[in-house]
Design a protein around this nucleic acid. Structure first.
Lengths: 314, 314
DNA sequence: GCATATCATGAGCGAAATTCATCTCCGTAA
DNA sequence: TTACGGAGATGAATTTCGCTCATGATATGC
């Protein structure tokens, strides 16, 4: 029976409830709310009927809260406070926010900029939460519906209702394992061209049929890279893996050469086991940017600024 | 202008708001809420007027949330969820609760039972908060109004609307500093009786004029202790301090002997610097108990059980 | 035991929310 | 381009719901 009442409960009654908790008097609670004592009493009556509890009983010191009422008081108070703040045009304050940020970033973008972002967040917004999510198949809708606050990556096309902020540029470089036989001599494009090659496939590459898409990730930027006069697109069946970590393991364990963004390669080189090769061939740069809803302000605007700062210092 | 609207805002509109966020359609939101499309539209209109924002704009995929609406969505959702849970007869679950417990305990009770309680709490109710508060002057009212959940201490009288649970018994013992000259020989009551004495005064001792009090702490239990045939009450001007820590410092630094509860003395002895003396004189025991509102169930009942467990193992 | 203060209750009224019907806007397809 | 269909906005009528006023009930204090 109580289950039914919950949905239909007049939430405004809870405001009367908190006033009664604090004033311990229908008369004073009414005065605070701009109502008469009678109105408060009726409201209390409705609340009693809805919850099946006396909630307040007359006592020497006024209306005494029942056990059930006290049980409710903490969460009800907290909830109403939340609502008041939510409805107010709330100036965003990083120091006190408990906002949850939902951001999609590829493993690449994640590795490169996020450590710095997390460091800033822990310092300036200790209460904030950052959920990093793997790219989904329809980022535009996820942004529209508020499930995502930001998408970081390389984009070919961004619809007008989103705003795109460039973060940094990068190019592709080749990586082979430390101790690779080819390292015995100088590495020319010709030598590289003879190695078995591996590339990291974009997650949504195999779907070129989406026309008029709102948010289009850069499709296989690596394909335009040339080696010995032949672009990768034209190479038959290169090995491909879906993410950089698989790629690094593969490169570390075998003699394949992998093409990957320079900054990612540098991180891997620092960790050992692989060597970055400064290709002499053409290396068209691509831009990594952040996409948010247009007109975003407050929390997301702040996060964007933080990410820009961090990316700018790369 | 918006300030005025906040107080008078119909909270039920926020329920429509969340339905719209999730359904992106006035028709579907209405169906979920048991309303017609028109009713939802009107409600949305009222909300728009109150908040001064479009909140939702018509788009290809239905009603798209505005930046402001998305900004509000997190806290509003969280608040409504809190309310639903608060109003439900919520079975208390230690593992998930975020309940704040407000407990008053003397430094003595605090030192003796609370370490064990905190250990249990961290393990079984990691989300709970425990606020330990120094005794106030009107514990009964604080309990009545829900500002306090429990009072731990020794009580002479407890009003019927509260329930008292005995936790453990204790007696007083004498404590002197390690290296005290009196330790050279055997310690008899006669030797003790000659030492300058210090006692810990109850915080509300000097107010015997409260008649018909609802919750009466044990007043100066130490006064009934006798040494060499003379009770402490009759001794002229013994040194007194308001709390056990001051007492221990005093005992450690000077040659005074202090009377304090045995368990407290044992803790101090373990920490060094002081020695407990097993008095041969009369040592009337007193009972430490926990007082809560009668009819308490759920969270407080659970906490009481935990404290009983811990006290039982002392 | 009476006086006072305060909450509960009932009837009537008024405002506000719902409904119904209609209009408007946008996207799609012919 | 036009016609159609779906979905939200709008307006007016109606009903519902909550407020006020007046009164009754109850406990407290002198």
């Amino acid at each position: 029976m109580s289950e039914i009442h919950l949905r239909n409960l007049d939430l405004n009654l809870l405001r009367v409830f908190t006033a009664l908790l604090e004033e311990q008097s229908a008369t004073r609670a009414g005065a605070r709310l701009g109502l008469t004592q009678s109105a408060v009493s009726h409201a209390l009556g409705r609340l009693r009927a809805a919850l099946g509890d006396e909630l307040f009983v007359r006592g020497p010191a006024g209306l005494q809260a029942s056990a059930r009422a006290l049980e409710m008081s903490q969460p009800v108070r907290a909830a109403l406070k939340l609502l008041e703040e939510a409805v107010a045009p709330a100036r965003f304050d990083p120091a006190t926010t408990e906002r949850v940020f939902n951001v999609t970033a590829s493993a690449y973008a994640c590795s490169v900029v996020m450590p710095g972002v997390v460091r800033r967040l822990l310092e300036e917004a200790p209460g904030a939460k950052l959920h990093l999510l793997a790219p989904t198949s329809n980022l535009a809708e996820d942004l529209d519906r508020g499930w995502l606050d930001m998408v970081i990556g390389g984009f070919d096309h961004v619809a007008g209702r989103f705003s795109h902020t460039p973060l940094f540029e990068d190019t592709g470089v080749w990586v082979i394992r430390a101790g690779h036989p080819a390292l015995a001599g100088p590495i020319s494009d010709e030598v590289l061209a003879k190695l078995p090659r591996l590339l990291i496939s974009s997650p949504d590459a195999p779907r070129p049929d989406r026309r008029g898409v709102d948010l289009q990730r850069i499709a296989n930027w690596s394909e335009s890279y040339a080696l010995g006069g032949v672009t990768l697109r034209e190479v038959e069946g290169p090995i491909s893996v879906p993410d950089p970590y698989s790629a690094l393991v593969m490169v570390g364990e075998t003699d394949v050469a992998a093409l990957m963004p320079r900054r990612l390669a540098m991180l891997a080189e620092e960790a050992g086991r692989v060597v970055v090769i400064d290709s002499t061939g053409e290396a068209p740069p691509f831009t990594v940017g952040a996409v948010v809803r247009s007109g975003e302000s407050g929390a997301v605007e702040w996060l964007l600024k933080v990410i820009c700062d961090v990316a700018g210092a790369l």
